[in-house]
Design a protein around this nucleic acid. Sequence first.
DNA 1: GCAAACTACTTGCGTATGCAAGCAATTAGT
DNA 2: ACTAATTGCTTGCATACGCAAGTAGTTTGC
Lengths: 148, 148
Amino acid sequence: MENLCLKNTLRLLQSADQIKARLSGDFASVHGISVNEVFLLMHLEKAPLHRLSRVELAKRMYVSASTITRMAAPMEKIGLVARQADSRDARLAFVVLTEAGLEKVKEARATFAKQASHVFRDRWTEADLDQLSSLLHRLIADAPGDLT
Amino acid sequence: MENLCLKNTLRLLQSADQIKARLSGDFASVHGISVNEVFLLMHLEKAPLHRLSRVELAKRMYVSASTITRMAAPMEKIGLVARQADSRDARLAFVVLTEAGLEKVKEARATFAKQASHVFRDRWTEADLDQLSSLLHRLIADAPGDLT
DNA sequence: GCAAACTACTTGCGTATGCAAGCAATTAGT
DNA sequence: ACTAATTGCTTGCATACGCAAGTAGTTTGC
C-alpha cells in the first residue's frame, strides 16, 4: 500500500516534469510570456472580479510571496495585469487582470490545449481521460486553486 | 476532447506542484540532500552497474546537461557518487553510485514513501491507486527514465 | 588519413525562486 | 488606548537552472 503510493507519486512527478519540459520551450516564443505567467493569468481569470491578493496567488500557485511580487512586476509593465489597492485594508495589493490580460490568457489557453492534446496522443479514449481527470481531481479537490 | 486533455494536463501539473511543495520542505532537513538529488540517486540505482553518463541522466531527469554537472559536483564531494571514465570513449564521464549513495537512496526512498502515503490519505482504495498508477504509466511508458 | 561534423562535458551569464529580514498596516490582549 | 503579535508585501542574498559558447574527444565523408 505504501509502495503503491510511492509508485504513484513518482510517476506523477515524472509525468509532470516530462510535460513541463515539452511545454516550456514553445510557449515563450509564441506568446511572449512563460507557462508560469500563463498560470498566474488563469488564476486571476478564474477569481471573482478577476483579481487576487498576492498572498492568495502565492498559495494557489504553491510559490512564495516574493515570487508573486517579482512575477507581477513585468506583467504590470506590459499591461497584462494592474495593481489595485483595497480601501479597507491598506496592506493589500491586488493583482487584477486587464482587458489585454484577458485576451492573452484566452489565446494562451488555446495553444495550451493544443499542446495538451499532443501529450495524450492516440490510444487515449474519452473514458480514459475522464477516469484520469476524476482521479487527479481528488488530489487537488481540497486545494484552494483548482484551475479546471 | 481537446478540453479534456487540457483539464487533465492542468490538474496533473497542479497536483505535481502541490506534492513538490509538500515534499521539498522536509526532505533537505532530514537527509541533507534535496528531492532532486534523491531522484538523481534513484536513476543511478535503477541503472545497470549503478551508473549513467551525464547526458543520459539529463535526458531521464528532463534537465540540461549543465544541471547534471552542477548537481553531481557536491554529491561527489560528500561521497554519494563518484566519477568514472570510460576506456572506450574518453569523453564519457559516468556518474556512479557509491556504497554510501546506495545507503542514502534507500533511506530517502523510505521517507519518500512515508510522505507519499500522506498525499493519498484516506479514501484512496488499493483499486483507485492501481488505476491511477496504470493511467500515469501510459504517460511515461515510452520515456527513458521511468523510476517505478 | 584528414578535415568536417558530431558528441560529451564544462563554464559564463542571465533569469527564476526561496528564505530571512524589514517595513507598513491591522488585529488582539489587557 | 497602548502595546504586542500578526499579516501583506517588498528586498537582499544565496541557490538552481537553462542557454550559448568553449574544449576535448570521436565519427563520418571523401
